[in-house]
């Protein structure tokens, strides 16, 4: 067992962990931070993404002992004072989730991307979240959500055409040609 001290979502914890304990298992099983989930064994899916000292990492590919002395933020810690993070809000606004299992990781990766690139192109968003797999959405509404959040976080309306509310270019209304 190794003693570690971490701050997670603003609270301090000291715990004894086996060195082999993955950060994600420490978060879920010892701290009850079950908002962060495990989706694979090989660091591909990104469902477990959290911020370690401000940077997005895959918490299934970090040992808890490596987080000793670090500040961890999970999906449960990104809202402030009851106010959702703009990225969380945008995922809701743009229907950027269906089953929601990839969503915590996807949101954490997107926040990290926007820290580095506050005004990404659609392609940059897609590349920025290449480490997160979603099986439900086909990603398009996730891209829209990240763009919406980017605009809000910049304090300006977004410049890109795809940022319009999802239904605008979905055609549900304007493209209806016949109602039998």
């Amino acid at each position: 067992m190794t003693r570690i001290s971490v701050r997670v979502d603003g609270a301090s914890y000291q715990d004894d962990v086996e060195p082999r304990t993955l950060l994600v298992h420490y978060l879920r099983e010892q701290l009850g931070k079950v908002g962060t989930v495990v989706g694979c064994d090989t660091s591909n899916c990104g469902a477990c993404t959290v911020h370690l000292d401000g940077e997005a990492v895959k918490s299934c590919t970090v040992l808890a002992v490596q987080a000793d002395g670090a500040e961890v933020t999970t999906i449960e810690g990104v809202s402030r004072g009851g106010e959702l993070h703009p990225v969380q809000k945008a995922f809701h606004e743009m229907h950027g989730l269906q089953c929601g299992f990839c969503t915590p990781g996807m949101i954490m990766a997107s926040i990290d991307l926007l820290q580095d690139n506050p005004d990404p192109s659609d392609d940059e968003v897609r590349e920025g979240i290449e480490g997160n797999l979603c099986r439900c959405t086909g990603y398009q509404n996730i891209v829209r959500a990240v763009q919406l959040a980017a605009g809000e976080m910049r304090g300006a309306p977004a410049s890109d055409g795809h940022v319009a509310p999802a239904v605008v270019d979905t055609a549900a209304a304007p493209h209806v040609v016949g109602q039998a």
Binding site: E130, G131, N132, G138, Y139, V143, T170, H175, V177, G178
Partner: peptide, 13 residues
Amino acid sequence: SAADLPHFDTGNT
């Protein structure tokens, strides 16, 4: 991943 899929233009009748 998102980087491997295109934008979709969708409509309905």
